[in-house]
Each structure stands twice: as structure tokens, then as C-alpha cells.
């Protein structure tokens, strides 16, 4: 009886695990199948490196949007990473219990706010401010990045805080016992040991930033052009799909799926790079690594 149960649970778990992989493979297969006609129609290189996106003239080039997506993501990580690491270190090492008790739920609430609310806030508040202080229309890469910064903060903060907390307390004790100050201990012992976890946090934050659609549509201006400065409007790959999917037919429809393929490949490349760093920075202790 127990043996039978054991078998059932084991196989059941296996099927569940496999199921998620099957679903992903099906989705990938579907996107490629749908997107391929457009790639074929335009030519893969022309599709990826084309500078013109104008479906009504049969022009499909997504290079401007690749730049747009990368630009917005990079800029928002540039803002979010230092901010959230400082916050995580504070929460993990320095914050008194009461402060932590208030701060932690507040940060987690940030993650629960729907992206349309962030987007609307950006449209009503941030964009006019940008226009007044930096000129132009206000719809800009910077506006999108700032909104995304707020959106990825909770992800990076909570995961890197967990990473910092998971460092064995002996490390800290040993460092302090050697006469290092608290700050020296944080900087030279705790932080370096937590780097793999922190990289994971940044990867997840990056994933959220590059995949965010609605908030970006509302503040980025959605102009398919290579921006000259961070104050110029841009269009992200995700926005391109969401903007036009409602209307598209034929090759245009397929081109939007092809945009999805490009986005997918881009994310995989970024993940590989990030995982490489994760692997290189891992800290070996005794038998395993953190």
C-alpha cells in the first residue's frame, strides 16, 4: 500500500514537472510557427535589422524596437540596482526590527500594484513633469525607465535581501571577531558572499522590466525610431505586439509573432549572459556553494 502510494506521488510529481516544460515547448512552437511566415516574407536579417516599421506599407523591421527595449531595460536597471541593493543591505543588516516590520510590507505592496496603475500615474504625473523640465513631448525612454525602476524595485529588494540573510552567521561573527567594523564586514564579507543571489535578483528584475508592456505603452511614446537621447520617445518590442495585435491580419499578424520570437531570443541571450556571471561568481564553501 505505502509502496503504491510512493509510486503514485513520485510519478505524479514527475508529470507535473514535465507538464510545465511541455506547455513552454508548445508555446514556443506556436510562436515560431505563427511568426515564421513573416520572417520568410521579409527575410530574417531584414526583419531584425530593418529600421522601418510601417505595416500599412509592408515594411517590417524591428531593430528600432530592439534598441528601445534594451535601452529602457538597461536604464531602469541602472537606476534600480543601486537603489534596491542599498535598501536590501539596510533591511538585512541595519534596520531595527520595528522599521523592518513596516518597510518590508510596504515594499511588497509595490509589487502588488497593477501595471496599468503605474502607467496611468506615469501618463498623468511623470510625462508632464518631463515635458516641463526636459522639453520635447515628455513621452520618453527616461519616463518609461523611471516607471519600470519603481516596478522592479520590490523584486530586486526582496530577493537580494533573502540572499544577504542566507549568509551563515559564522561569517559575520568571524569578521567582527577579527576587528572589522560592521560596514567593513558588510562590504568585504557579506556582500561578496551574497553576489550569486543578488545576480539572480537582478536577472528576475530584468525579466520583469523587459517584459513589461502596458506601463511602457502609456509613457514611452511608442515611436519606432532610434532615440537620440534618453528624452526621445521609443517603442519597445512588447509594446509593438500589444499595440497592434488587436487589428493585425495576414503578414502583419505574423510579423507581430515574429516580434515575439525576437523578444524571446533576446531574453534567452540575456539570461545566458546573466547565468554565466552567476556561475563565475559562485562562492565555494566546504562541499557546496551558496
Amino acid at each position: 500500500m505505502t509502496k503504491y502510494e510512493e509510486f503514485l506521488v513520485e510519478k505524479g510529481l514527475f508529470i507535473t514537472a514535465i507538464l510545465s516544460i511541455i506547455v513552454i515547448i508548445l508555446i514556443i512552437g506556436f510562436i515560431f510557427q505563427q511568426g515564421f511566415p513573416a520572417m520568410e516574407h521579409v527575410g530574417i536579417l531584414k526583419f531584425i535589422f530593418g529600421m522601418n516599421w510601417s505595416p500599412s506599407d509592408d515594411q517590417y523591421g524591428v531593430f528600432t524596437m530592439i534598441i528601445g527595449s534594451l535601452g529602457i531595460t538597461a536604464l531602469s536597471l541602472l537606476f534600480a540596482v543601486p537603489l534596491s541593493l542599498c535598501c536590501a543591505i539596510f533591511l538585512a543588516e541595519l534596520a531595527p526590527r520595528t522599521v523592518r516590520r513596516i518597510l518590508k510590507p510596504v515594499i511588497e505592496t509595490l509589487a502588488g500594484i497593477p501595471s496599468v496603475v503605474y502607467g496611468f500615474f506615469g501618463l498623468i504625473v511623470l510625462v508632464p513633469i518631463m515635458r516641463v523640465y526636459f522639453g520635447g513631448t515628455g513621452f520618453s525612454m527616461l519616463a518609461a525607465s523611471l516607471i519600470l525602476t519603481v516596478m522592479v524595485l520590490p523584486t530586486i529588494i526582496s530577493i537580494s535581501e533573502d540572499a544577504l540573510r542566507s549568509i551563515p552567521v559564522e561569517y559575520k561573527e568571524a569578521s567582527l571577531a577579527l576587528g572589522a567594523t560592521h560596514w567593513q564586514t558588510i562590504r568585504n564579507v557579506i556582500f561578496p558572499a551574497a553576489i550569486p543571489g543578488i545576480i539572480t535578483a537582478i536577472i528576475l528584475g530584468m525579466g520583469r522590466a523587459i517584459g513589461e508592456t502596458l506601463a511602457v505603452i502609456m509613457v514611452a511614446g511608442n515611436v519606432a525610431q532610434i532615440p537620440n537621447s534618453i528624452f526621445d520617445p521609443v517603442r519597445a518590442l512588447t509594446s509593438n505586439i500589444a499595440l497592434e495585435m488587436g487589428y493585425a491580419t495576414g503578414i502583419h499578424y505574423s510579423a507581430l509573432f515574429a516580434t515575439g520570437i525576437v523578444l524571446f531570443i533576446m531574453i534567452i541571450i540575456l539570461l545566458i549572459i546573466a547565468n554565466y556571471f552567476h556561475y563565475k561568481k559562485k562562492v565555494v564553501i566546504g562541499g557546496g556553494y551558496l
Partner: peptide
């Protein structure tokens, strides 16, 4: 081609209002 693209009537209204 450098016109700002907004995805709904409401968004156009807000953009012009602002």
C-alpha cells in the same frame, strides 16, 4: 514618423490635455 503613438482615445486626450 516621429509622431507619438497612443493606444487609446483616452490616452490621446490625456496627452493633449497635458
Amino acid at each position: 514618423s516621429n509622431a507619438i503613438v497612443q493606444s487609446s482615445t483616452e490616452a490621446v486626450l490625456q496627452a493633449v490635455k497635458g
